[in-house]
Simulated assay, not measured.
Amino acid sequence: MARTKIAIIGSGNIGTDLMIKVMRNSRHLEMGVMVGIDPASDGLARARRMGVATCDGGMEGLVAMPEWTDIRIVFDATSAYAHRRHSEMAVAAGKQVIDLTPAAIGPYTVPPVNLDSHLDQPNVNMVTCGGQATIPMVHAVRRVAASLPYAEIVASISSRSAGPGTRANIDEFTQTTSRAIELVGGADRGKAIIVLNPAEPPLIMRDTVYTLSRGAEPEAIAESVEAMVREVRSYVPGYRLKQKVQFERIGDNDPLRIPGYGTFTGLKSSIFLEVEGAAHYLPAYAGNLDIMTSAAMATADRWVERMLRA
């Protein structure tokens, strides 16, 4: 069966890890072109060694290549600012776009939560690494609760796994993730925090999810969370709970005060996650790369599966 050719724009950490994943693990995808703007980048050099066509002229250079005709899907792993132009050019040429920047031109997409709802979209946004890790947990609580007034996530990643693209998009990271916690996760209000941890040796990605819910018992939330962990592990094997979900009842005698929301009484859930990377490009501590690229590849594979059934 012929595979679907793809282009990856961005030859940094995320783009290079994605390239290796596609070549090793994808069910339906084939590397067409790796695109960058630095001729000396490690990502472009690695692509050339692996027999992949390369372009150091950015999106404009890609469009001028003869390989462009055969490309069906474009992954953008550059920056939120650059993605707007890249998306316009790719969509105008009839390509599907998977956005790994925080630009959020297309709908926020988290595979185990809402991917099937966005298979008709020309551009989908993969939120952020913290969003891909934590929004499934927020949704797991919301789907068994009567309401979810608030959810807060803290994503802690190793400084070594944060490339220049990630560092240039910190503000967009927090804004995009917070919004996606609400739109995809289902919280009335969402808040996101990212921590770049300089510890040596580097620490594996850790994520903490706090939710304030009403109308669900701890047992139902714990079961829903564990089921969602299994779903995420189907495409990110290193995704796991660090310990059982912790619960605290907030009573009328000591309600929480949430800025912009008011007072809260109900059930507080604390979910502690660890994401170990598959070490396709960077070492295993870079779970933030692994969950983004794995989610993007899962999205593209699902797109192709749908085309094959049509």
Rank of each mutant, 00 (worst) to 15 (best):
A145I: 00
Y261L: 14
G15E: 03
I291R: 02
I250F: 08
Y239F: 15
A80Q: 10
R85Y: 10
G215K: 03
R160M: 12
V138A: 01
D42L: 10
G130V: 03
R72P: 08
P198I: 10
R142M: 08
S117R: 14
V184C: 05
E305S: 11
M1A: 15
W303Q: 13
I221Y: 02
E172V: 04
R143Q: 15
S79N: 07
F272V: 02
L115T: 00
H83P: 08
P259F: 08
G94L: 03
V52A: 11
M307L: 14
A168W: 05
A2S: 15
C55W: 03
H83M: 13
V35I: 13
N169T: 11
I135D: 02
M23I: 03
A296G: 08
V74R: 09
V144C: 08
G190K: 07
R240T: 12
I98D: 01
M297N: 05
I8M: 08
L256Q: 10
V144L: 02
P255L: 08
P237F: 06
A296S: 06
S156T: 15
M59T: 13
D42M: 12
V144G: 00
A145L: 00
R306V: 09
Q243W: 07
P283Y: 03
R257C: 11
F75H: 01
R3E: 15
Y235D: 07
R142Y: 06
